[in-house]
Amino acid sequence: MKKINTVCIVEDDPVHLFVTNRFLTKSGLVEKVMVCSNGKDAFEQLNGMHLNEELLPELILLDLNMPVWDGWQFLDAFVKIPLKQKVVIYILTSSEASEDVRRAEFYNLKNNYIVKPITLPQLETIIRPLLS
């Protein structure tokens, strides 16, 4: 069975991190999980990878409400990296606020907006199209 190489989870809440990680493992569709505790951490790690010309994760599951940099700040910085590969980002948040949904639209992520808790079938639906 094919797998994608790496999924990056940007999440500060250990419970959700645990749950997401667990489902990813359970799905068996992912080779490696990369964890970042906030937006800034994620940007620095991913930017470093880009500068080292390493392969970036194919999928990023991004929480919005985080310390240091929140999800939006990460997005603002991340979109400026001139990527050479395709990276799919899903917002994974517990916010159903219409304000957040509208804002996601601005980053063209309206359809990539999942309200926590994520379920295994949802995760599988996200990953499948990415299996090349």
Binding site: D13, V15, H16, F18, N65, S94, S95, E96, K116, P117
Partner: peptide, 13 residues
């Protein structure tokens, strides 16, 4: 927002 995050965590756990 935050309570929802926690409660959904509890539920899924």
């Amino acid at each position: 927002h935050n309570l929802r995050s926690h409660s959904s965590g509890i539920a899924i756990l």
